[in-house]
Design a protein around this nucleic acid. Sequence first.
DNA 1: GGGCAACGATACCTGTCAGGTATCGATCCG
DNA 2: CGGATCGATACCTGACAGGTATCGTTGCCC
Lengths: 283, 283
Amino acid sequence: METRELRYFVAVAEELNFGRAAQRLGIAQPPLSRAIQQLERRLGATLLDRTSRSVTLTEAGAVLLAEGRAALDAVEAAERRTRRAALPPTGRPGLVLVTKASASRELLAELLDAYAAEPGAVPVDVILCGPGEQERLLRQGRADVALLHRPFDSTAGFHTEELSTEGQVVVLPAGHPLTLRSHVHMADITGLPGLPLPRWPGPDGSYPPGPGPQVRDHAQLLQLVALGRACAVSPESCRTQLHSDLAAVPVLDAPKVTTVIAWPPHLRSRAVADLVRTATGLR
Amino acid sequence: METRELRYFVAVAEELNFGRAAQRLGIAQPPLSRAIQQLERRLGATLLDRTSRSVTLTEAGAVLLAEGRAALDAVEAAERRTRRAALPPTGRPGLVLVTKASASRELLAELLDAYAAEPGAVPVDVILCGPGEQERLLRQGRADVALLHRPFDSTAGFHTEELSTEGQVVVLPAGHPLTLRSHVHMADITGLPGLPLPRWPGPDGSYPPGPGPQVRDHAQLLQLVALGRACAVSPESCRTQLHSDLAAVPVLDAPKVTTVIAWPPHLRSRAVADLVRTATGLR
DNA sequence: GGGCAACGATACCTGTCAGGTATCGATCCG
DNA sequence: CGGATCGATACCTGACAGGTATCGTTGCCC
């Protein structure tokens, strides 16, 4: 199977429309139809059920969509990492680290400082991204290491080392009655009148149904809390980033949040190993 | 980057000889030379340093070899799993489980029985393989789940759940003086005269240097022990498989061995989820 | 040191196939 | 019933994968 065929199939499977998929791929529709037919013939599998009005995935098609995306990510990672390895060492980022924009600045700063002090340290580029994007960046080879937060982020398919664990707090508008309490429980804050918990997008970018405002990142969320439109349960370390119009109260029975450092398993570079060792040795 | 190009490059990088690589690929040497040149041009990277007498990998080439193998595995997995999903449900293996031939029969039998009793269970094919092969089988889509043994097997890149933990024993020829002891320590058995610990092949199939016989699987190893040519440190559960000419003594300070069930992270099938749930619920 | 063997690169040819345009056939809709 | 939408088919063309022949370089051995 060639990556071209995979790319074509993924495009059609995502659009469920040959014309639009062809447009997205920058080719005409007939060659695309033919390519998919040939792929189906070679696999001995019907991937799409097509009538002249609609296209739907078969069971096999759904499998190929999931596996094909992973395979294309792997190919892209190979290409990207090779390109980077070939750059002249001057100015080339030795490591690309990705973390959520909302993550604790302290831990990151501490890690970068400690690593920079190591003998043989290479320059580290930092990418900040929204929740849920790190995984893809790692898998596509755009980044080498990530700081992830269990249980929010999936560590599927990566090597990880735990760095720290912390409890969670509920973030409320300053002056809310609950802010007088020394601590609360989850039951105290679910269904708080006028302050629903927000909804985060799933892996496919769509939001689950239900009440609560839709948010894409932590800054949006804090904005909503300050506006009195939501409340948020976040790791303790976010307290250092709260403005005075927000208050935080520990939630005793919220799940603990573990910060882990994660990297693709087959990445066997000295720099990654050093960084991980530095990270695990921090405390 | 097309998979064809990747396959070509991996072949050359493994053979370090264009002629042999071409032969292995079933094409002539000139097109192969051209393909690699084109790949290098497109990546903007020199992958191989070639003189008319020798070919060596550059830094970028080494990166592409590692990443490219992983990418090719992913593509192969996509193809294989799609093909299987398209088979008529009758007789199609619902799940393929892979484990070491030397692993505990009890745990496996118990798991298979318990799963078969679940509502909605599908047929399970079992593959037995030598140590270190499971990882590749999972990554290439030849298997869906594996029983791995930490710390021997790398669980890199997979989802895992721990199933059981056990100590290790040293396996000795029956009648050896140490068999009279109720337990031993590692120090007692390293450098035992005439009974060296064996050497296992690394991920690349080559053996580390040093003394001790070379073994490829557990059966070979036990054979060597019975012949009085080696001793072996193995998980306790192997005791049930020992013949009367072998004896086992617990090694108190040997690392504990954890049996885990592992599966590729993006495999989102009901059957795998059921099997994992059954496995974790066993005890 | 000259001849030879090994090996990758180059030159050149050919057939296949990816991709284009035009058009058909089916289906839904007003 | 006519038009719009959408995938499939027919047919053409150019690029490129792959083949053979051959060259240039470099160790090596008599």
